[in-house]
């Protein structure tokens, strides 16, 4: 039986907008395939064995909580950096995504990021809120659906985005890019939560984990009909499907 370990970074601090549902989706889609998925929670000051982790997840939080997380995150930066360079899977949403960049320029001044990804974020005036559809630029084209809710505008310094905005705002509301894909790091503004409604992305993370650990690349098919129906509602409401 295959076994993978998922690390939920700062679940007590960064847990807005139902993003914990992403962990649920990873675990369930493993279970349904008879893959054992263990979840390790990492909170401020914890000690865990980072080299045992196959998939990392980090969500977003309110400003003050994000501040607490970011100061702790500097302590675990070497482990995260190593994981990223070893092509481990990492999904970062919204605030967690911003934290991986070089800095976040707020109205009060710049906040240092982890600097794992070559991107930066500035705070904008208008909050970018609403349903969003993104065309993923990976091997097979796929529409990611979700809900975005952020004031930060993220700019990529030449890195590849996760996809291009079909409807909504994305990284900054200007250049049509959304999120980032660097090695096996997926950064994105999509809540929803993103994984239950985009099973292709969820399975991609599991596939990467299995490939890294066991050299296996094939995942069995699951019945995703209800996932499809939930997706269709968003695609229809954004006039992408009729």
């Amino acid at each position: 039986m295959f076994q993978i370990t998922i690390c939920h970074l700062y679940p007590e601090l960064l847990n807005l907008y139902g993003d914990t549902g992403n962990i649920t989706a990873l675990v369930k889609r493993c279970q349904w395939r008879n893959i054992q998925a263990n979840v390790v929670k990492y909170n401020v000051g914890d000690h865990i064995k980072f080299t045992d982790i196959d998939i990392f997840f980090i969500g977003g939080g309110a400003d003050s909580e994000q501040g607490i997380a970011s100061s702790d995150m500097n302590k675990i930066k070497p482990y995260l950096q190593q994981a990223v360079e070893e092509c481990k899977a990492l999904l970062a949403i919204c605030g967690g995504y911003q934290l991986l960049g070089k800095f976040y320029h707020t109205r009060q001044g710049p906040i240092e990021g982890l600097g794992i990804l070559d991107l930066h974020t500035e705070s904008g005036e208008k909050r970018l809120v609403g349903n969003i559809v993104v065309k993923m630029t990976a091997e097979k084209p796929y529409f990611l659906v979700g809900f975005e809710n952020h004031t930060g505008r993220t700019f990529l310094h030449g890195l590849k985005p996760l996809g291009y905005v079909v409807s909504g705002y994305g990284n900054n509301g200007i250049d049509k890019t959304e999120g980032i894909r660097y090695k096996n790091v997926f950064g994105t503004y999509l809540h929803g939560p993103i994984l239950p409604k985009n099973p292709v992305l969820c399975d991609e993370l599991i596939r990467i984990a299995l490939k890294n650990k066991y050299g296996v690349e094939i995942l069995s098919e699951l019945d995703d009909s209800i996932e499809e129906m939930a997706r269709r509602h968003i695609l229809k409401s954004q006039h992408i499907l009729s």
Partner: peptide
């Protein structure tokens, strides 16, 4: 409701059997 599919999806991932869920 308009988001019944999202609700069904949530129940599915909570571990409820799909054959018990009716739209």
């Amino acid at each position: 409701g308009r988001r019944r599919h999202d609700m069904a999806l949530r129940l599915k991932y909570a571990g409820i059997q799909m054959n018990k869920i009716k739209l």
